[in-house]
Design a protein around this nucleic acid. Structure first.
Length: 505
RNA sequence: AGGCUCGUAGCUCAACUGGUAGAGCAGCGGCCUCUUAAGCCGCGAGUUGAGGGUUCGAGUCCCUCCGGGCCUACCA
């Protein structure tokens, strides 16, 4: 562990302050105003804080820049709402306070409290003058990066992705836009809950630790419970538990929760991610499409003031209705080939002609999925419901009454990215058992993602589950769309990274 | 997992074809009671991600490893 010169100097400064009786980490500070409120109050150029009754405030925040001029100093103080300039004058403070603190041992990055009145400088900037008190609230021992700004241009901006993800606390301090992304993500979740609660859906919580996992095609994380000496899995989906609740008589339930999938990382995948799952009794997937459209339109309107949003430089129109396009029509539209009804060999030939990477282990379902995700998905910029998937890909979905070999299912694709997955839920316990057994067969053949049989879930279905529709929305990907971020790591506060080789301290 | 690419001071970046590691900000000392990328004078700051190799000489070339990014793969 070696400290940089600047760290040693700051530790020395801390010690000097303590020796002079200045507490580097005091216990509290009364905050009466935030930067944005103060600036709002006097945003009118003509309104002068010095006129009439003075506005007295007490603010707290982090020093982002410091300009000391002998007996007085200006600093930019950043709180959660934004940044306001503060002004400290030697003559305003009790004897010695200025010299001990501001003049000598105050650094960029320190947290301070400023109490006094608001005024406008000769240059016109609304400023809090420490006419009453100036106090150190927390001494920073590490130097903060010091990006600067002039006329809208930023200098020395912190751009290192590794630093930004590993030390998100620094990122949040020096890149204020990041706060806006996560505020918007929070607003998205809040609006989604409002939307669902208004419709009388019940928010529930189901186990993240599961003795049998299911509800998706993915490899799970495993863990162990000591007292029960039992192997447990981290959930890969909420689905099977939520549908048990439909059996139990709840007619509309949803859960917003973390799922965990033991898979690779990419711009679109983090091993733990947030999913909203929703199940409604007596509805089918067509009804669910309409609900999904309404939800997306509502979110866009609340977050962006209208149903058209911008993502990666393109306008995305989220006004209902969204285009509905059956999977096989989509493939035909983009490849000129009608794959519906093809057997495995024919599908393999098509995939070869399209120069797709396939292997012998891929069955019908996977081949179709491969063809679709390579040729169609990236080209779907505007929201599109892709409907009616092969039964092989959908072991929990109800068969389509008219289309042989297909199920009533849709995925919503926006900006080339899959955001939603939904279907009419399979509630025939015997059909469900047959689908599980097919999965078990694939498992036996070495498909590590095929689902295990969940006997308790089958037992629940045997008591009778109402016809129902279910929907899953990848919240992180939706947050990407709504905040115009192209990497999932930019909408997850602490994305998974490899451990640092030389961890601090 | 594979390909490409990056890693230099606290931060942002330079350093030709292999020839003494530099700048701005930040920091330290001094001046300065309306500054705002504050200013002026002076100063310090580096195991060039780690290890090995080639060479008279390596930030630069080669190999291995570590970490990041992008792409591919994996991933409904």
């Amino acid at each position: 562990m070696s400290r940089s010169e600047q760290e040693r100097i700051r530790r020395d400064a801390r010690q000097s302050l303590e020796e002079m009786g200045v507490e580097p980490y005091p216990h509290k500070w009364d905050v009466t105003a935030h930067a944005a409120d103060i600036l709002d109050e006097f945003d009118d150029e003509r309104r002068d804080p010095d006129e009439g009754e003075r506005m007295n405030v007490s603010i707290a925040g982090r020093i982002r820049s410091l300009r000391v001029m002998g007996g007085s100093a200006f600093m930019d103080v950043q709180d959660e709402s934004g940044t306001v300039q503060a002004y400290v004058r030697k003559g305003d403070l009790p004897e010695g306070v200025y010299d001990k603190l501001v003049g000598q041992h105050l650094d960029i990055g320190d947290l301070v409290g400023v109490r006094g009145h608001v005024f406008r400088t000769n240059m016109g900037e609304v400023t809090v003058r420490a006419s009453d008190t100036f106090k150190l609230l927390s001494k920073a021992l590490r130097p903060l990066p010091t990006p600067k700004e002039k006329e809208g241009e930023t200098f020395n901006e912190v751009t290192d992705k590794e630093l930004r993800y590993r030390q998100r606390y620094v990122d949040l301090i020096v890149n204020p836009d990041v706060r806006e992304v996560f505020r918007r993500r929070a607003q998205l979740l809040s609006e989604m809950r409002d939307f669902l609660n208004e419709r009388d859906f019940l928010e529930v919580e189901t186990p993240a630790l599961q003795p049998v996992y299911g509800g998706a095609t993915a490899r799970p994380f495993t863990t162990h419970h000591n007292a029960l000496d039992m192997k447990l899995y981290l959930r890969i989906a909420d689905e099977l538990y939520l549908k048990r609740l439909l059996v139990g008589g709840l007619e509309g339930v949803y859960e917003i929760a973390k799922d965990f999938r033991n898979e690779g990382l990419s711009r679109f995948h983090n091993p733990e991610f947030t999913m909203m799952e929703l199940y409604v009794a007596y509805k089918d997937y067509r009804w669910m499409m309409e609900l999904t459209e309404k939800l997306f339109a509502r979110l866009a309107t609340k977050l962006h003031g209208g149903t058209t949003i911008t993502f990666d430089g393109e306008d995305i129109a989220l006004a209902p209705p969204f285009r509905r396009l059956p999977l096989f029509e989509a493939i035909e539209e983009h490849t000129g080939r009608d794959c519906y009804g093809m057997n495995e060999g024919e599908l393999r030939d098509v995939a070869r002609e399209l120069n797709l990477e396939i292997d012998e282990a891929m069955g019908k379902g996977k081949l179709i999925d491969e063809i679709f995700s390579e040729t169609v998905e990236p080209n779907l910029t505007q929201p599109t419901f892709i409907t009616d998937y092969p039964v092989e890909l959908s072991p929990l979905a109800k068969k389509h009454p008219d289309k042989e070999g297909l199920v009533e299912r849709f995925e919503l694709i926006v900006a080339g990215n899959e955001l939603c997955n939904a279907f009419s839920e399979l509630n025939d316990p015997d059909d469900q058992r047959a689908r599980f057994e097919e999965q078990a067969r694939l498992r036996a053949e070495g498909d590590g993602e095929a689902a295990p049989i969940d006997e308790d879930y089958l037992r629940a279905l045997e008591y009778g589950m109402p016809p129902a529709a279910g929907l899953g929305i990848g919240i992180d990907r939706l947050a990407m769309l709504m905040t115009d971020q192209r990497s999932i790591r930019d909408v997850i506060l602490f994305p998974l990274l490899r451990p640092e080789s030389d961890a601090p301290e």
